[in-house]
Design a protein around this nucleic acid. Sequence first.
DNA 1: GCCTTTCTGGAACTTTTGTTGGATTTGGAC
DNA 2: GTCCAAATCCAACAAAAGTTCCAGAAAGGC
Lengths: 232, 232
Amino acid sequence: MGIHWQQIALFRDIDRCGLGRIEAAARHHTYQAGATIFNEGEACAGFHILQEGLVRIYRMNAEGRLHTLSLLRPLSTFNEVAAVDGGPNPFNAVAVTNVEVLVISHDRLLQLMSTLPALLNNTVQALAHLNRDYIERLEDMTFRSIPSRLAKLFLYESTAYADQIAEAPTQLTQEEMAAILGTTREVVGRALRGLLNAGLLEKRGRHVYIADRRGLEWLAETNMMPERLRER
Amino acid sequence: MGIHWQQIALFRDIDRCGLGRIEAAARHHTYQAGATIFNEGEACAGFHILQEGLVRIYRMNAEGRLHTLSLLRPLSTFNEVAAVDGGPNPFNAVAVTNVEVLVISHDRLLQLMSTLPALLNNTVQALAHLNRDYIERLEDMTFRSIPSRLAKLFLYESTAYADQIAEAPTQLTQEEMAAILGTTREVVGRALRGLLNAGLLEKRGRHVYIADRRGLEWLAETNMMPERLRER
DNA sequence: GCCTTTCTGGAACTTTTGTTGGATTTGGAC
DNA sequence: GTCCAAATCCAACAAAAGTTCCAGAAAGGC
């Protein structure tokens, strides 16, 4: 089969034989656009490898507000945590477009890890990396204002969002940006207008582009709008 | 030496010989109250095992506000992530009281993990567990109001705080609670007064105790103050 | 005991974020 | 092209959180 295992950090340095066993352990699933892949709190759905399509990882609170943790494109993997400890899924996953995934159950993953040291090693590294991403997201929520988080989203290439969010912000609707930033559509609209007025972003036709990367970086780092009053 | 390795989840199921090698790889350090153990962004400080004293794990933003991620007592471990991937420390660690720790460097940890499969296995589980804690903290910051987070802190035994915050909130100052919740002292004071007025907490002498566990749980889950107007 | 430092109580105010609701624009289906 | 659903813009308002400031109370050192 045409699976490019080498492109996935988790399967690096695993020999042909090991890859064959991993492939044999995986089940192929397809989902229609809009279909739920698994839900938060449900029994462990196993380790997922995204082969085709776009997947949204999110949480929802009691009032129905969404928080998008990741927007994933191939080749990405998700639900590592539950796959590894066998506990309930820590978030929801939904197919945004038609989706194809490979799934390895908790039990089979444990078997594979116990006989393929390289896989176990890679898993440790992947989990450590995930942990760093979540710490960064947590600090963003703790310390940064919404305009600042929005600026960071636009600068996403070099930040935590890069691994997790696969769409350029330009392509995202305000609703989707709001879910990523953990706020509401109207607030994102307001913040966006603020950044446009400040000359940090500019609108070309329908889409919004970066106009002043330095200014965005300043805003993302300090929570303060750059004062450009001096430019007379 | 009198190290109780069995009590640390990471060292479970490791035989006497393996534990001996781990012990040999560890360096003993002591810190005075107030001393910095390591700083965020600095080169990997290695894996730490807390044997004695109280350690604060925190991040700080540009304006100098603190966010306490953990308050740890023996026997706890910290800096797993950097120890495992060798990257910079993801947070600061400071000795609150006099502290004794064992430290295993990144290189030695990798050596140990490559020869002790049980240690590698335990590390995977520990990292997965950490990840779940961070996701929960992240969702708290995204969705919960400050009174709600404060209620959750008082219910700490049954939440993610149990692993990360080793101090009963009753004993904490408002300043310390504020750092844990990611806000300021005055806001915590106001929220505390709100919970006292609502009869969810009560004051005995200097300290504040839980008066209505159900009410706190309601507040923590829904973000809404329980309406007790009906109790005529 | 006294004095200093730390902690707490609380008011008044500002800023940010969230909410509501309506007007307008856009893209795509047909 | 026309029409519809989705997306956006924007103002006014409400609520939550952050800030500033000062007065008291408690704890700990001497």
